[in-house]
Design a protein around this nucleic acid. Sequence first.
DNA 1: GCCAAAACATGAAATATTACATCTTTTTCG
DNA 2: CGAAAAAGATGTAATATTTCATGTTTTGGC
Lengths: 228, 228
Amino acid sequence: MPLKTSHCNSCLFKTICDRTIGKEDFDDLYRSTTFQIFRKGEIILRQHMKMSNLVFLHTGIVKFCYNNYGKDIILTIDKAPTLLGLANYLNNNVNFFSIIAIEDCEGCMIDEDVFQRILTNNPSFALQALNSFTNMFRQSMQSFISLSYNQVQGRIANILVFLSKHIYESSVFRLPLTRKEIAQFAGCSTENVINTLRKFDHDGIIRINGKEIEILDEKGLQLVCRMG
Amino acid sequence: MPLKTSHCNSCLFKTICDRTIGKEDFDDLYRSTTFQIFRKGEIILRQHMKMSNLVFLHTGIVKFCYNNYGKDIILTIDKAPTLLGLANYLNNNVNFFSIIAIEDCEGCMIDEDVFQRILTNNPSFALQALNSFTNMFRQSMQSFISLSYNQVQGRIANILVFLSKHIYESSVFRLPLTRKEIAQFAGCSTENVINTLRKFDHDGIIRINGKEIEILDEKGLQLVCRMG
DNA sequence: GCCAAAACATGAAATATTACATCTTTTTCG
DNA sequence: CGAAAAAGATGTAATATTTCATGTTTTGGC
């Protein structure tokens, strides 16, 4: 609870809201939120569960998981700051998928009723929420296309580019996923991930050392995305 | 133009609108629309083009196409009655993908500005539009998962189930797609589609004669969707 | 009705991918 | 710290998929 106070003064969510909703509405929203820490591996939203919360993620990285007849699939990765649960909210609060912390995260639980009230009273806030949803949709679309119509090499190359550009914004980063999780993301076997990553290393496109990854030849990697 | 008048009295779009927007708003919308016939193969919305129209489709079946570095991909199939262009509208009017008639279609072009005005003035209409968008998102998600994490057999089985359930609502129908188009939908080679369909026929799951398809063993087909 | 183009069909060879078996390294936890 | 579990690595055999070559059938103008 003391954390909440210290955070909220500089809270990005507040900053965003300030531009689109009034002080009164924000205070309403504010009173309904509770600060929460999620440890690595913890489930923030669980697939098929009915939720009455959205979560504004302040720090951390999460994975969107879908369990398909017992098989786990990773749909996408997202990082703070971001609003989680919008797609679920639009789906009668029944969660499409699970959202799981892949590193320690901090977030604020937002009451769904309050959120709904503000949404219907503030066209510009609604529009912004819609925009955020559209962006997620477009991102999903891109993954979708990469995953469905490329070979494994192209899919893994796409995942590396995605992590580099959208999550870490750097050509050097520490893989947040295990090889098995990359396989669940790329829709292939774990061995295939290992072999493909090693091939990229041998070809001089990336340098890999355990979980440390450096993209050496971005143009080459982009080419694999398209052709692979 | 005479067609417009005769249609509009019993227009489904009007019926939907009547429940959520007032007569004045609808008349506004009505004055801005133009009736249009699209022949088989015609492009209704073109990828990357900036559009200032939405299209309410009265009759016909369309495919959502995405051109990825010169390769054509089918994202999904939709049929009348439906509102086309919502995702594009939310994307600053830049079309995500092309929408192409796969049989003769009739539709009404809706002016984007008028649509926008009504959207911002009518929370319930906006909510309904949002809902429609969410449904499309969910549908895409399902395709996405099927395509990415199943083998070819499962993907083709999924497409057959999709056409049977959502497009024709019957276990007997005439394939609206060529084998090549099914391949573009399933993300595999044309030959693979042909062989897989024939295998399903030999296994007694479907009966196929050119473009005529009958699903004989729905449970079996569903099993292939999950396992294949 | 005829011709050309497209669609459909088929089999074989080349390639991609998975599954399995086994081993090494790293991480986790009492 | 040390044992157990998980993750990572590697090679091979089995399977799935594509590509190519070729032939047949259907479709769409003129």
